[in-house]
Nucleic acid binder design. Structure first.
Lengths: 174, 174
DNA sequence: TGTGACATGTAAGGCGTTACATGATTAA
DNA sequence: TTAATCATGTAACGCCTTACATGTCACA
């Protein structure tokens, strides 16, 4: 069967940076990675278990307070191998799955009231998103320094901003 | 549970234009709709059966040659209702699920050979895609005429071209 | 002392991909 | 006559979402 399981590579990539808990990993999808991938904790925890069984990762326990013990996961050599192999593979291009565009496709009438309403709503949502992305850029890459040491992350954020800007410009032409 | 099932709305939207077979619907995802959504025939046929049971669509049989009988599906009033209701709903924004961007995020070194190779490969693939989109535009909307009567489709294609152009420009800056 | 964030799991079920399977029609 | 396309299905399985479930810790 074999489906992609790209989530696995994200987990490996993040653990390759530093040891993290399932909760930490889940949090990543609310910020940075959330711009271009999504995942819930209910997907993360079983995956971590599976990946540990496959010897891609391991975990050590960290005592927090008096009772709570966190599981912090670490990447292992097999994990590094398949992560690096994945980076070397050609990347597939998915179709974008944009619900607004899907609806738009079915609207023939340029003067439809619905169209006007839909575009206005998207403009609002997309503008908010762009503002949020610009804020991220200001927070994370205020100067040239970090743009060098986290170059990929910087490029990704730059792209997200460029994409939203282009999207908004396009919306204005509808 | 209830997941989105947007495929259902695409089927309704297409049948709202004209009666189609499962095969016709499947084909749509290789061309037009393929720019922004994907589906296989193995997903389409069971869905058609389910939607027929729910009285959203019906089918009539069409004799082809001497033996083959096609099933051509038609939208019914309940189907039109839920399709139009969907158009009125706010549209969700998914994260984009772009594998190249995913990989890029994990590459810190601006001078990495891998990065150079990856970007070159994407530039090639994306340029081909842009060329294909431009061809589509020339084929489907050569003049103002169809841009008026299939306005949504025209906008969607215009967006795809704009998006790819922006993507390529961004790739060149990496 | 209570609220919100931290932290970790499981279960049910829908969605999507790949593979398996079969047969008819058309055009070179 | 044979290859490509048309045409319609099922099966297995992995992925993802939603919901259920429980408990700790820090801080106000």
């Amino acid at each position: 069967m074999a489906q992609k399981n790209r989530l696995q590579y994200i987990v490996l990539g993040l653990l390759n940076i530093e040891s993290r808990t399932g909760y930490d990993l889940t949090k990543s999808f609310d910020s940075d990675i959330g711009e271009f991938w999504s995942a819930n904790h209910s997907q993360i925890y079983p995956l971590l278990k599976k990946m540990e069984q496959e010897n891609l990762i391991s975990h050590h326990e960290v005592q927090v307070g008096t009772k709570l013990v966190k599981k912090s996961y670490d990447i292992m050599s097999d994990g590094k191998k398949i992560f690096n192999a994945w980076l070397e593979e050609p990347s597939e291009i998915d179709s974008s799955h944009d619900e607004f565009i899907l609806k738009l496709y079915f609207i023939d009438d340029k003067k439809s009231e619905l169209l006007e309403k839909m575009v206005a709503e998207q403009l609002s949502v997309r503008s908010d998103k762009l503002e949020h992305l610009n804020q991220q850029m200001r927070d994370k890459f205020p100067d040239q320094d970090k743009r060098q040491t986290q170059y990929g992350h910087y490029c990704v954020l730059k792209h997200a901003i460029s994409r939203e800007t282009d999207y908004i410009e396009w919306l204005k032409t509808i």
